[in-house]
């Protein structure tokens, strides 16, 4: 799950940063001449900077390979079920709400009034995918459900006082 990866990676790097700051704070006393420190750590900085740039480039290229904006590659002859979604204060007008496991779906999402967010949650309330619902525009989000169950649609863009009760359900069967 992406959320878990994001959390673990964040924790690792945040801990690393905390350790670096902690060590420097602990070694802040016992004054030494600054010139040799500058010389040594500027050299180290070049290595650190190059490493950081390379890592960032690699992660950028890796994570940009497969964007959620693009239609996934389906098996030959398979076309997604196109579902029209219209958000309005404070509910969802969804053209189809029952699907099969493994059925590729394309949600075309717009709004009748203000900005909303179309978030698809599984039964354990994990966010699986989302897109914005905006008046005059149609955003698209693709999903293929792997498990049967009742999935929830939650509004993920603040839209007014009943924002938090702007939910809907969709059913996925075998």
């Amino acid at each position: 799950m992406i959320q878990t990866v994001a959390w673990v990676v964040s924790l690792i790097f945040m801990t690393l940063i905390a350790v670096v700051f902690g060590v420097v704070a602990l070694k802040s006393q016992g004054r030494r001449d600054y010139e040799p420190i500058k010389k040594k750590w500027y050299k180290a900085r070049s290595f650190y900077a190059i490493t950081l740039v390379i890592v960032m480039l690699a992660v950028t290229i890796y994570t940009l390979r497969d964007l959620p904006y693009n239609q996934p590659v389906y098996s030959e002859g398979q076309e997604p079920t196109v579902v029209d979604v219209e958000a309005l204060q404070f509910g969802w007008d969804i053209s189809q709400t029952e699907f099969k496991v493994g059925e590729p779906i394309e949600f075309d999402v717009t709004s009748k009034d203000v900005n909303h967010g179309f978030g698809i949650y599984d039964e354990d309330m994990n966010l699986l995918a989302q897109t914005q619902a905006m008046p005059e525009y149609t955003n698209t989000v693709y999903i293929t459900f792997d498990e049967p169950g009742t999935y929830e649609i939650l509004c993920l863009e603040y839209c007014g006082l009943a924002h938090h009760i702007m939910t809907a359900t969709i059913e996925v069967t075998e």
Partner: peptide, 15 residues
């Protein structure tokens, strides 16, 4: 930075 990654933002945006 992690949230600015598009594939992560897909499940983290507005959380």
């Amino acid at each position: 930075i992690i949230d600015a990654t598009i594939v992560v933002n897909h499940v983290m945006h507005n959380t």
